[in-house]
Amino acid sequence: MRLPQALREADDAGAISALTRYYGGSTPVESFTGARFDTWDSTGSRPADTNRFTADDLVAVTFLSVEVPARAAIILLDTRAETFNSLLTALGPDRDLVEERNPWPATWVGWTLWKELTALPGVGPTTASKLLARKRPRLRPIYDSVVADVVGSNRLWEPLRSRLVSEPSLHERLVRLRQEAGLDEAVSALRVFDVIAWMEGKFGPP
């Protein structure tokens, strides 16, 4: 996979410009709706719900221009909620993707959870990635067709893991960019990558 143009440049100006435009800088009213995805917590229970999909998660993904169909929502939040709770628990706590040093085997619980999400009626890889990124924002990158075009890959999770592990300075740079753009710490390094790639795909390189 290739990096977005802004991350291939030595200068951080283009990446910071993309981030501040997306998140609104000092004027949040002008930000993209996706700027609320990272921190949305209408009930104040998000820290306690790391191993449970909630209605807030379903609302948050709408900020990224996708919706979980009604039948899928019922399965996710009610009829098979315990299955998804168990898988999230088995996946373990959130951690930075760069810490996953080795490729995951086919039996890894993360792949099982991924298959279960994409098997929900009307839920494809884009929506599944956004749902999983709500629960493990430091571990799961967001995927959509715009980002796929920019990075030149229809797969993202494993290719990005491999790139971060082989190039740890990339993770460090993403964290630094978040800080320099003045973003909330809830915005993960992976989300910084996503926003930079998405902005390039929508509006062109900086």
Rank of each mutant, 00 (worst) to 15 (best):
3 L>R: 02
8 R>A: 08
9 E>H: 03
11 D>E: 15
12 D>C: 06
14 G>D: 11
15 A>M: 05
20 T>R: 10
22 Y>H: 14
22 Y>P: 05
23 Y>H: 11
25 G>F: 07
25 G>W: 00
26 S>K: 02
26 S>P: 01
29 V>G: 07
34 G>H: 15
35 A>R: 03
37 F>M: 05
41 D>G: 08
41 D>Q: 10
41 D>F: 12
43 T>E: 11
44 G>D: 02
46 R>D: 12
52 R>C: 15
55 A>N: 11
56 D>E: 06
57 D>Y: 13
58 L>R: 07
58 L>Y: 02
59 V>F: 03
60 A>I: 02
60 A>H: 05
60 A>M: 03
62 T>Y: 05
63 F>Q: 09
67 E>H: 12
68 V>R: 01
74 I>M: 00
77 L>T: 07
77 L>K: 11
82 E>M: 11
85 N>T: 10
86 S>H: 07
88 L>G: 06
92 G>W: 00
94 D>M: 09
95 R>Y: 04
95 R>V: 11
96 D>S: 13
103 P>K: 07
106 A>W: 08
106 A>C: 00
109 V>S: 10
109 V>N: 05
109 V>P: 09
110 G>V: 04
111 W>L: 14
112 T>G: 06
114 W>K: 07
114 W>D: 11
116 E>Y: 09
120 L>A: 10
121 P>W: 01
126 T>V: 14
127 T>L: 02
128 A>F: 02
129 S>P: 12
133 A>C: 08
134 R>S: 10
137 P>D: 01
141 P>Y: 06
143 Y>F: 15
145 S>A: 07
147 V>P: 01
156 L>W: 03
157 W>I: 14
159 P>F: 06
162 S>W: 06
164 L>A: 14
164 L>N: 15
164 L>F: 04
165 V>C: 05
165 V>P: 04
166 S>H: 10
166 S>N: 06
169 S>K: 08
173 R>D: 15
175 V>D: 14
175 V>N: 07
176 R>F: 07
177 L>T: 08
183 L>I: 02
186 A>L: 12
189 A>Q: 04
189 A>E: 06
192 V>H: 02
193 F>N: 03
194 D>R: 12
195 V>Y: 08
196 I>K: 11
199 M>A: 05
199 M>D: 07
202 K>P: 02
205 P>E: 14
206 P>A: 03
